[in-house]
Design a protein around this nucleic acid. Structure first.
Length: 400
DNA sequence: CCTCCACAGGAACTGATGGCGT
DNA sequence: ACGCCATCAGTTCCTGTGGAGG
């Protein structure tokens, strides 16, 4: 009797492969020839040029929609410059952080600090005052005579956090050099939102926006070109059909030219074709890939919800297209069944808006005259998906 | 034309957690 | 030991509102 796992492994090993080089099918892989960002690259390089002359460059702001390669270009150029100045006495340190991945201002600062080489002991991950954390960062830079370049991705999120807490960390970051005697700090902000600058403190704008580079969107033609180059490099000749290529470009490039999504789609479609032992990728696999990626995303976010949000989701599922009030009483019942204390309606309204943000449900405000104002929610995913995902959750399996 | 429903959603607060400086 | 700062999940209290039905 053969082991099914072994069978799979055998098949994968002996089966024909239409993908030559998988690395090229990742967005993060950007070979010289494949990058279509000549003028943007030049602009970024020029802004950072002073480093080669051992002086601090101006702060830089980079704009562009998702999947335009902003982050990649910035990182690539900085590390190139880093190589050049390695041996000189002006070593630079690249610090990258994505504000979106950090929920709090504190978290972001700690993240930056960790990359500067501050350990848990020198910089605990909670308990400190913001100003104390900031102080430690600057000290580290000064003591180490570091020339740090902070690359802050999705800096609009940081701006939001700053606005919420009333701290002017952005201002302090842009002016940090006035407090540094031996090191220096350069700020490179990356933002998806071209209008975000208008919401900033004018003092921050003047120092942060010293230089600006805008990454334009890719159009469908350019996306196709990028895909073609990747296909040439990574697939066995002629294994992606023309219509399939067009479909990928249309699916991913349609709205605002997201090259990342296009390349992901190409990779997943290629892998699917290979798994099905096909020698060509057709539109069929592209559609499948697109659907699979969608489902993966849904399942992942469903699993990551805390218990009460899951209960709320089940409540919505039980009565699809219902008002907040109905959802709430349905939720209260579920709480009784699983033996958990119920939360207030206010909290549930808030959860509903949070879930709505994640795209799992959609809500519509309706006014029913004398019957008041409410919001009707419905699932944007299939209820099977929810049942499937929650089935292995011990507390929930009885009620789904 | 006014009333009044059934919530939306803002603001301020609480209590727990964890670590600082004094 | 004690007050202070930041964060998180949740609560309390609140003001606001489009339009059916009188």
């Amino acid at each position: 009797m053969s082991d099914p796992i072994d069978d799979l492994l055998d098949a994968a090993e002996s089966g024909k492969s239409i993908i030559k080089n998988r690395n090229i099918l990742h967005f993060t892989y950007m070979p010289e020839t494949i990058l279509h960002r000549k003028s943007e690259q030049e602009q970024v390089t020029q802004s950072l040029l002073p480093i080669l002359k051992k002086s601090r460059p101006s702060n830089l702001l980079v704009y562009g929609k998702p999947g335009t390669g902003k982050t990649l270009v910035v990182k690539k150029i900085i590390s190139k410059i880093q190589e050049r100045v390695e041996k000189s006495n002006f070593p630079i340190k690249l610090i990258y952080s994505n504000s979106k991945e950090q929920t709090t201002l504190y978290g972001l600062l700690v993240n930056l600090g960790r990359q500067l080489g501050l350990n848990e002991k020198e910089l605990p991950s909670n308990g400190l005052a913001i100003s104390a954390v900031f102080e430690r960062l600057l000290n580290k830079i000064d003591e180490g005579k570091l020339n740090a370049i902070f690359v802050i991705d999705e800096i609009d999120y940081l701006a939001q956090l700053v606005a919420k807490t009333g701290k002017d960390i952005l201002y302090q970051l842009t002016r940090a050099n006035e407090r540094l005697t031996q090191g220096s700090l350069t700020l490179v902000g990356i933002s998806n939102d071209l209008t975000f600058k208008e919401r900033l403190d004018p003092r921050v704008i003047s120092s942060l926006g010293e230089e600006e580079v805008v990454f334009t969107n890719y159009n469908v033609e350019q996306i196709k070109k990028i895909l073609e180059e990747r296909i040439n490099e990574s697939f066995v000749g002629d294994s992606v059909e023309e219509p399939a290529l067009n479909l990928i470009a249309a699916l991913a490039g349609g709205e605002h030219g997201d090259a990342r999504r296009a390349i992901d789609l190409l990779r997943v479609a290629g892998e699917l074709a290979e798994r099905q032992q096909l020698d060509r990728v057709t539109t069929e696999q592209v559609r499948e890939a697109s659907q699979k990626m969608e489902e993966n995303k849904e399942e992942k976010s469903l699993k990551s919800f805390p218990l009460h949000e899951k209960l709320v989701l089940i409540a919505i599922m039980k009565a699809n297209g219902s008002t907040t009030g109905e959802i709430y009483s349905s939720y209260k019942n579920l709480c009784k069944v699983v033996g958990k204390d119920e939360l207030t309606q206010r909290r549930i309204t808030q959860m509903l808006s949070e879930i709505e943000l994640s795209g799992i449900i959609s809500g519509r405000l309706i006014h029913q005259g004398i019957h008041g104002r409410t919001k009707k929610y419905k699932l944007t995913i299939s209820s099977e998906m929810i049942k499937k995902t929650f089935k292995d959750d011990l507390t929930l399996q009885d009620i789904v």
